[in-house]
Design a protein around this nucleic acid. Structure first.
Lengths: 198, 198
DNA sequence: GTCTATACATGGATAGAC
DNA sequence: GTCTATCCATGTATAGAC
């Protein structure tokens, strides 16, 4: 599969699914709509994704999760102190969401909430995505000398507050909650660094 | 409407909608399913809620939001220091979710994310619910001498981290993220109190 | 690999008797 | 206020030619 430019429709389907699911969630997005927006006929849909909607959504979630992982990495690799770099994740998220007037959200969150009880596959992928993001933040915290347990807790807090603030930001159509989250993240990092040496 | 025991089916429909939407979200829950679980025929559904699914969902969201507001108030009125009482919101949330093995989530979050771009009504109700919860926390913070702006920011952070942690907890089927959130909330409160006097 | 047409179930909503 | 039957659109998925 996919050697040259074959299966360009596969990529378009994934891209279409990522966008539509970010906007409307999993249940609210139909396969016909995904195919139409991706300029692909249904024949291509089920050829590339024999597992149907669930398989494409799982793939799309993976792609979206990787993209957000890159945003996290870029923020953590930016200039400044650790608290400032961690806060930059929230600020970069705010910029990203503002780009489309908060119509496009997290590529994982909505589907995660919708499918907790209905799809083991999507729930597993959601968990995997969150775990990876948490891992990136925890690694950066450990690099600052914070012990493993504290680094993990800090990372869980950071991802939690960003996800929650993202929801508030979308509902309000304003970046303010994410800016507030950035400040809170910086404070939590400072506190964690303070407990480091003693 | 609703004077004696008439319209008991109305209450059952609301109750059914709250539960199903907490479990599957808005798009994933059908009106037929709501009626069936509420032991009400479709005739009653559209008699009590001429606005259809959206109207019932809005009502259900209001009921669910009030219930959670009571949980917040109870936590904030409990014994202990302010940081401890604020953290209690997250701990009480963890207990609540664990009761049904994390199958039932926030009565607002999933629908909020799903309908940001598709329903002004539900988006407005979501915003209203979040604003009320934030207001309760902010009021408690101000009662500790924290100034209004700082109290608001603290409250936004508290609700954000709880919502995000709730999502992680459901996906993992574990209360751990909410316990971590409780600690983070306590730290944020301590920091805010510290900036209070100077 | 792609396309069209279509099967079949479910979705939201309504009609009209009671 | 309640109930059943039903309309029509949409949803997921498949068939089978190309």
């Amino acid at each position: 599969m996919a050697r040259g430019k074959e299966a360009a429709s596969r990529e378009r389907l994934i891209e279409s699914a990522v966008t539509l699911i970010r906007r409307q969630g999993y249940s609210g997005t139909g396969v016909n709509e995904i195919a139409r927006e991706g300029s692909a006929p249904m024949g291509s849909f089920y050829y590339h994704f024999p597992g149907g909607k669930e398989e494409l959504a799982a793939t799309a979630m993976g792609v979206g999760a990787q993209a957000y992982a890159r945003l996290i990495s870029r923020a953590l690799d930016s200039e400044g102190t650790f608290p400032s770099r961690a806060a930059e994740i929230a600020r970069a998220t705010a910029k990203l969401l503002a780009k489309d007037d908060f119509s496009l959200g997290c590529p994982v969150a909505t589907t995660a909430l919708e499918t907790v009880t209905s799809s083991e596959v999507l729930r597993g992928r959601s968990r995997q995505a969150f775990d990876e993001w948490i891992g990136l933040v925890a690694d950066a915290a450990r690099a600052e000398g914070i012990d493993a347990a504290a680094a993990h807790e800090l990372a869980v807090s950071v991802i939690s507050i960003i996800e929650g603030a993202e929801m508030l930001a979308r509902v309000r159509g304003s970046a303010e909650p994410l800016e507030v989250a950035a400040s809170a993240i910086a404070r939590l990092c400072v506190a964690a660094l303070g407990r480091r040496g003693g």
